[in-house]
């Protein structure tokens, strides 16, 4: 699905990714974890072509992404902070993104799912953070692409919406999609992901199912397993 080979990225003097090799197979939920500033977002943005790597190759569904924009038809991306043009209405934004990508009817179902009907005529600048995130989710999920990338999808969501989001993600997985998630909420990750990818200092430190991580670190639960990686490496 996604193959990353020897990926290097530097921002000025700051080496963020130093030789990432990663192979994401088709189908399933993969959580990308790592401490703050470990390069999770940079990795995701490299796959999306928003960050141009200094070195390395990325292929998505067999297509090399260099100097290519067509492959993004197969990716749905949820950005970390949803900041939309503030003088646009929710309805207009959805219509516009559909116009830029392709027509779909899926948005109706998602608007109902996240109870967004009362906000459709409101301007995006007047929405609360959580509501913006819901709009963001609608924009992401309405295209039904085989690869879904979610950067901190839980930000700002209330408990009910969080449950709905989890159900939505599970339903997408059941359709055979590949889903990449970054999150700092460990319980969310543990509940939802099939495999985790742990990034540390610009390299892949661990890739595999959570149970394997627990045996590797000798910790009974997931949160402590993660914590032990961090203390072992920063002690």
């Amino acid at each position: 699905m996604v193959t990353i080979q020897n990926l290097h990225k530097k921002f000025g003097k700051n080496q963020v990714l130093s030789g990432v090799d990663l192979n994401i197979s088709e189908g399933g939920i993969f959580a990308i974890l790592g401490p703050n500033g470990s390069g999770k977002t940079t990795l995701i943005k490299s796959v999306l072509g928003m960050v141009i790597p200094n070195k390395g190759d990325i292929t998505v569904l067999g297509e090399n992404i260099k100097k290519n924009s067509e492959y993004r038809h197969k990716i749905d991306y949820l950005p970390q902070i949803a900041n939309f043009p503030s003088n646009l209405r929710v309805k207009e934004l959805i219509k516009m993104i559909k116009d830029l990508r392709k027509p779909t009817d899926e948005d109706q179902r998602l608007i109902e799912l996240f109870r967004l009907e009362p906000f459709l005529d409101k301007k995006l600048g007047n929405l609360s953070g959580g509501t913006k995130q819901k709009v963001n989710l609608v924009l992401t999920f309405m295209f039904d692409s085989p690869l879904v990338i979610l950067d901190e999808p839980t930000t700002g969501l209330d408990p009910i919406s969080l449950i709905r989001l989890k159900d939505l993600i599970k339903a997408e997985k059941a359709k055979g999609k590949t889903i990449l998630i970054t999150s700092h909420i460990m319980s969310f990750v543990e509940e939802i992901s099939d495999e985790i990818v742990f990034i540390l200092e610009g390299k892949i430190y661990f890739k595999g199912p959570i149970s394997e991580l627990k045996t590797k670190t000798n910790q009974p639960d997931f949160e402590h397993a993660i914590a032990s990686i961090l203390t072992d490496n920063h002690a």
């Binding site: 999306l48 072509g49 928003m50 924009s69 067509e70 492959y71 993004r72 038809h73 990716i75 991306y77 950005p79 902070i81 900041n83 939309f84 043009p85 993104i97 830029l100 990508r101």
Partner: peptide, 12 residues
């Protein structure tokens, strides 16, 4: 920010 949203779409 809007440009960033567009960059993730299949547009050159």
């Amino acid at each position: 920010e809007f440009t960033e949203l567009l960059l993730a779409q299949p547009i050159k």
